[in-house]
């Protein structure tokens, strides 16, 4: 992602620090994660301390400062999913991929993340890969789900 694109995003939000979250979200959508040099650039352009930008980038769960895999697996750990066995589903995914929550596989195919509720509780336990929903998951469905990618 080049600085011209960042400039365009910044302009779309009127160069205002109040839109920092939206700006960072848009950058992450394009760049897959939040690269350091872009965060420094954003801080400089908005005229705010870099520490403030880093505070946002590390506070919210949606942001990643590390490159992520081509597919992001989000396992919902909301209450409804929890009581229906979400932890076992997560453990199975971890075991299948050999990574822990928050990590990326060596081949950069998958990044595994957990979310504290995706708001689709009737589908629980729920796993979302990129934008595809896998509802009513259980441990035996995991290998098949991963084979889709």
């Amino acid at each position: 992602m080049d600085f011209d694109r960042v400039d365009k995003i910044l302009k779309a939000y009127g160069m205002k620090e109040t839109h920092l979250v939206s700006i960072l979200l848009d950058i992450q959508t394009e760049a897959n994660f939040l690269p350091r040099e872009i965060l420094s650039y954003v801080a400089k352009k908005l005229g705010i301390p870099l520490s403030q930008v880093c505070r946002f980038a590390t506070f919210y769960k949606a942001f990643s400062l590390k490159p992520r895999g081509r597919h992001v697996i989000k396992t919902c750990l909301g209450t409804a999913c929890h009581v229906r066995g979400a932890v076992k589903v997560l453990q199975t995914i971890e075991r299948e991929l050999g990574i822990r929550d928050g990590d990326t596989t060596r081949d950069f195919k998958f990044t595994l993340e957990t979310v504290n509720c995706l708001g689709a509780c009737a589908l629980g336990p729920l796993v979302v890969i990129d934008n595809d929903y896998y509802g009513q998951m259980n441990t035996t469905k995991v290998p098949k789900m991963l084979k889709d990618y």
Binding site: S40, P49, S51, Q52, C54
Partner: peptide, 20 residues
């Protein structure tokens, strides 16, 4: 008025640090 240090992360991982 410098903002050289700030909070990083949240909850039990919260710490004071310089950017990166």
């Amino acid at each position: 008025g410098i903002g050289a240090i700030g909070f990083v992360s949240r909850g039990k991982k919260l710490k004071v640090d310089t950017p990166f």
